[in-house]
Each structure stands twice: as structure tokens, then as C-alpha cells.
Computed example of a mutant assay.
Amino acid sequence: MGTIVDLSLELEALPLGQALASTDGLELELEPVVPIGPRTCPFFWLFDRSSQTRRHDRIATFERRVEQTADIDDLVRVGNVENGVLYRVGWCGDGVAFVDAVVDADGAILEATGTSTEWTVRLRFGDSDRIATFQQYCREHGIPIELVRVVDLEHERSAYPATLTSGQAEALMTASRMGYFERPRETTLAEVATSLEVSPQAAGGRIRRGVSNLVADALPIDDDGTSHRSGRNNY
């Protein structure tokens, strides 16, 4: 039925990570990617979680760094929200060993969140043999990965409400238990992240996407027949 793998990855393992280094406050979220062939053109969101002061400068600095990255073919702004920008980027798979490792094992990148320190990545493989192929490729090509969790897709779907991924459910339950949603708050995002053993940016992303999915699932159908459930964030 398939297997889900959660892992952490050094920034340098993906081209965009080089532009994120030493950019505190910025968080990059790749849209789900199924790598096909040597060229991958994903979309990604860049969020600025810090204050609005100098936000334009921070984003402009990130864009300059991306354009100076050798493996990047092009960077195009697609849209904007209050605290973030949606981009389309093209890079050559020949220079991205981690992407090649996923392709070689017939895997898919479901989620990848980058901060100034690391990537947190979620992959899907057809079976455990494919995971072994992926790990072997990483070892042979010197790609340092840290496995966080490996779980069968069947267990992943049955252990939590269908609306949430396991990472989102764990983050929401931990945050609730620690009083993160109380007013005044009884804990900080950093403390929740420490409990989850992830970065504050990753913890915040999981909480935000989880809440978004729960709200979308709970909202009624609009008068025009449009259901908010179609907007789920399943990564």
C-alpha cells in the first residue's frame, strides 16, 4: 500500500537551501513534487514569519541568492499573500543528488519545509524495498539523511483523522496539551517544537496546515455548491 518516510536533511542537499542559510525568519514550503526525468520545476511558498520590518529586503535578498545558485534555471513570482510569495522554480536534476535518490527509488516528495538550519522532508515509497534502495543511493553518494519516522501508509491513514497527516495531528495534540492555544498561552512555539524534536518553523507549519485542514473540513458548502474541503493541505 506504500510507506511514508519522514527525515531531516542538510540545507545544502537541495539548491534552494543554499539561499535559506542564515536567513532567520524565512520558511520555505515546497508544493508536493513527483520528480520525473532530469528536470524538476516545483512551486514553493516563501513565508516571512518575523516582523514586517525589512520584509521586502529579506525576500529580495533570498531571490538574489537563488538567482546566484548554479543549479537554478529560473525563478518566477506567481502570486503573493500577506506574509509570503508563491514561486515557480526550475532546477537541473543532474546536480541534485537527493532528488535523484528519490527518482531512483520511484518515490515522491510529499512535503519539504526549509528553514535557515535544515530541511524537514516527507517522502512516499511503494514498499520497504524502495526505501532500502533510496537509503543505499544516499550512502553511495554521500547524502547525509536522518530518518525520523517510517510508517506504513495504511497505519498513517488509520491512526489519525483523514483530514490530518500524522505530523499535523501530533503537532496539534502536543500544542493543545501544552497549552499553546490557551489565552494567555501557557507555552511557546519553541517549547512545542522542542517537545516534537523539530524546529520552531517546522512545528509552526504543521500546526498552521493542520488547523487549515480542520477548518476546511468543518466549513459548510457554499451557496454556489463549492465545498471548502477541496482545499485540504495533505502534506
Rank of each mutant, 00 (worst) to 15 (best):
L189N: 08
P184M: 11
E197T: 07
G204N: 04
G179F: 03
A202P: 00
D217H: 10
Y180D: 02
E197V: 04
Q201P: 04
A190Y: 05
G225T: 10
G210S: 09
A203C: 06
R208M: 03
S199W: 00
Q201K: 06
F181V: 08
G205H: 13
D217K: 09
A193W: 06
E182I: 01
N213K: 09
T188Y: 10
E197M: 07
S212A: 14
I207N: 02
Y180E: 03
E170V: 10
T194S: 04
G210M: 09
S199D: 05
S212D: 12
I221G: 03
L196E: 15
M178A: 13
T188G: 00
M173D: 13
T226E: 09
N213R: 10
E186N: 07
S199N: 06
S212Q: 12
E191M: 05
R185D: 02
E197H: 05
E170G: 02
V215L: 14
G204V: 05
T188S: 15
L189C: 08
G204E: 07
S199M: 01
P184L: 11
D223S: 14
R177E: 15
A218G: 04
Y180K: 11
I207A: 08
T226S: 14
T187N: 00
L172T: 07
A202T: 14
G205P: 00
M178D: 00
S195Y: 00
T187H: 02
R208C: 01
Y180G: 09
V192D: 13
V215H: 01
D222V: 05
A171W: 03
S195G: 05
A190H: 05
A218T: 04
V198P: 06
E191V: 02
N213S: 04
S199I: 00
D217N: 08
I207V: 14
L214P: 00
T194F: 02
P200H: 13
T226F: 02
V192P: 10
R206N: 08
L172F: 01
A202L: 12
R206T: 04
Y180V: 07
A190S: 10
P184V: 10
P200K: 12
R208Y: 04
E186K: 07
I221Y: 01
Y180I: 10
A202Q: 12
I221W: 02
F181E: 03
A202S: 11
L189H: 09
L172N: 11
I207S: 06
T187Y: 07
T187S: 05
I221Q: 14
T194L: 08
T174Y: 06
G204Q: 04
M173A: 15
A203H: 02
D224A: 12
S199K: 06
Y180M: 11
E197D: 15
T187I: 05
R177N: 15
V211E: 13
E182T: 14
G204L: 08
E197L: 07
G205S: 14
R209F: 01
I221E: 14
S212R: 12
G205L: 05
A218H: 04
S176L: 13
R185Q: 15
A216F: 11
A175Q: 06
L214R: 12
R177C: 14
S199V: 02
R185S: 09
I207R: 12
L219R: 07
A203K: 07
V211P: 01
V198C: 12
G225W: 13
S176N: 15
